[in-house]
Amino acid sequence: MATTRITRSWRPENSPAVLILTSLADGPKHGHALLKDIRRFANVDLGPGTLYGAIARLEEQGLIEPLATEDRRRPYRMTPAGSVALADVVSSMRRLADVGAARLTIATGH
């Protein structure tokens, strides 16, 4: 249990910004849809303050953009710069995963 808590806190894929970009990679979503999607694919419960803090930063950096409001719900979509940023993060996580897996194989002999 303790290990789960520790690893969850430093896993790079748990960064709210990465989670939001990953969620928006398959199409625009509003706040609540983002929370539900992130819960489903990452098993992470983002708080509402954390979600909107990350949305505001991503918007400032031009990685996502707001669309027209629908019934007081404002959807966001990923910008081309956001796609590039997410691709960069994913490829760096893949490199890390490959190195980690290879070294674990050497260490454990499996």
Binding site: H30, H32, L35
Partner: peptide
């Protein structure tokens, strides 16, 4: 002014 409306709707939904 920028996020208040959508934030409260998101909390309502949640």
């Amino acid at each position: 002014a920028r996020y208040g409306d959508e934030f409260s709707t998101m909390l309502d939904d949640e």
